[in-house]
Design a binder for these strands. Sequence first.
DNA 1: GGTCCACACTTGTCATGACAAGAACGATGA
DNA 2: TCATCGTTCTTGTCATGACAAGTGTGGACC
Lengths: 255, 255
Amino acid sequence: MTCILGGMEMPLHERIAADLRRRIASGELAVGDPVPSESQLGAQWNASRAPVRQALTSLRAEGMIGGGRGKPAVVRRHTLSQPFETFLSFSSWAAGLGHVPGQRTLEIARRPADADIADALQLDEGTPVVQLLRQRLIDGRPTMLERTTFVEPVGRLLFDFDCDSGSLYAYLGEQGVDMTVARHQIDAVAADAQDSELLEVELGAPLLRERRCASGMDGRPVEYSDDRYRPDMVSFSIENSQQAHPALLRDWRAS
Amino acid sequence: MTCILGGMEMPLHERIAADLRRRIASGELAVGDPVPSESQLGAQWNASRAPVRQALTSLRAEGMIGGGRGKPAVVRRHTLSQPFETFLSFSSWAAGLGHVPGQRTLEIARRPADADIADALQLDEGTPVVQLLRQRLIDGRPTMLERTTFVEPVGRLLFDFDCDSGSLYAYLGEQGVDMTVARHQIDAVAADAQDSELLEVELGAPLLRERRCASGMDGRPVEYSDDRYRPDMVSFSIENSQQAHPALLRDWRAS
DNA sequence: GGTCCACACTTGTCATGACAAGAACGATGA
DNA sequence: TCATCGTTCTTGTCATGACAAGTGTGGACC
């Protein structure tokens, strides 16, 4: 069962944390339910308190569970907060929530960069880039429209990859593509004709737009993307306490 | 020396972390410098590895130090970003950009909470709350519409305050109101009649909405706000590197 | 019936010890 | 000179044990 969450080579505390995340995401542990106590978890996994506490600390940092000294931990949220990865990978985010992600790659093309793209990717206008147009689905319903542009050396890898099969970013990562820093810009736009058709909303309906520019550690841009979400299905949320670091999430709205 | 960092009653791992933060902030440990190893810190503090590691884990989560398995920790940053203040105070944000902020408080009222508000503030429906409707301007142009609701004990303070004079949050802070944690939810909505009139956009135009629920350290909600921005004037941006925590900013779009 | 308190349970903190995994560095050989 | 290898150091992981601090509950008492 736990094999889908990762191989057995994971450290014990990560396996415990992954199992708890799964149980929370699946609804087996609902919001407000008490999380098994440290001693119970220790008995279940035949582990000492150290890895159990490490797992719980991890979930606590993600905001999934609450509790404190003397207060048994309770489930606070069922979303997983993995800011960067989650933001990149639509599929794993949806899957983590227990929904069925889908995607249809409508176009993949190599063409010269226009002014906007060239500016975002710090290229000269006319430099060849690879553009991808993908419709993203959740439980079969159109949720997001993704217009992604890669610089040519990276984009060329996509022609050898079935974009509708696995995770694109996992594939690029395996190929040695480094995308460690990203800048996201979020605003609202009215749906144009193409948006309207592919997202099944009215022309001019408000859409939540996320524009993203991802770069390698050296600061050279690798990808630029214009993602448009149906605001009735997805929103973004940020949680920040004074001490803790804010976490950016993508929220799913069951409707 | 360490007394300014807190009383002696702090747990050991917090004292170690606080001391390291001080040494890093003061420049005694500059960016790039190696942090004392776990064994060195253990000897310095006459402590076992557990509290030392807990302290280092804490600093690592804050992005102040790097390192990893086998790699001795090094100082990465000497400050921690605090995007919270920026997000709360519209005025200081605009002023920091060199623009002229303005505001017109259109309504301040004490009324019973409706279902949505009651849910957000964890009150019973009908509990009295204080609501504020404010139009925010930049360089004289309508930019944002703010519908804020405070729980009554906090909201009552506003009747003794000229909302159009100074910073509201600074005033509340002086009055001892604690708002250390906040949850922001961002999506897009179509402008309704009131939005349309006060933001000077067409009916149905896309607006960028930020809903915010701020709480005290004890987790009790203090304020709930529904802020709607003209997307042609403001957007949000988030910057994240792989390890470091993302920072949320509000962006101004000169037009 | 309401109040107060002792007790059980939970989590937080810390010491000690052990082994594994990865990195840095110097010595060695080509 | 440069590549390679092994030693050593550092951090990651985990077991065991102990006490402190806070919470919740049930029973005794008024």
